[in-house]
């Protein structure tokens, strides 16, 4: 099965394609909002998370920042073979 990361696509003018933004949002939704909550020894306010989404949506449409995020994806996926 392909990784959700494989869905990230950049269009010719350097903008993240809609599917890419949705895929990134899906990843963020899972990691920031879902998953088991275990109280570690550092407390983060969950209330901030929705703000992150709002901020990110604005941010992802900035080509520079989107490229930074995508470079990160390339870095992590090249470290091992994809399944």
């Amino acid at each position: 099965m392909s990784s959700p990361f494989d869905q990230i696509v950049v269009s010719s003018d350097g903008e993240l394609a809609e599917e890419a933004e949705l895929s990134l949002l899906e990843t963020l939704d899972h990691v920031l909002n879902r998953g088991l909550v275990i109280a570690g020894e550092i407390t983060i306010s969950v209330a901030d998370v929705d703000l992150i989404f709002v901020g990110l949506n604005v941010l992802v449409s900035s080509v520079e920042k989107a490229n930074e995020v995508l470079r990160e994806r390339k870095k992590t996926t090249s470290k091992e073979e994809t399944g």
Binding site: L24, H30, G35, I52, L56, L59, K65, E68
Partner: peptide, 30 residues
């Protein structure tokens, strides 16, 4: 937002790596 997005992607990548091979309980960020 960019800092967070990058960390979230790294977190996801780690969880996926292990989830591919064995059953894991994915934790929320942080």
């Amino acid at each position: 937002a960019a800092w967070t997005a990058i960390r979230a992607m790294r977190h996801e990548h780690v969880v996926e790596h292990f989830a591919r091979q064995t059953s894991v309980v994915p934790l929320r960020f942080g």
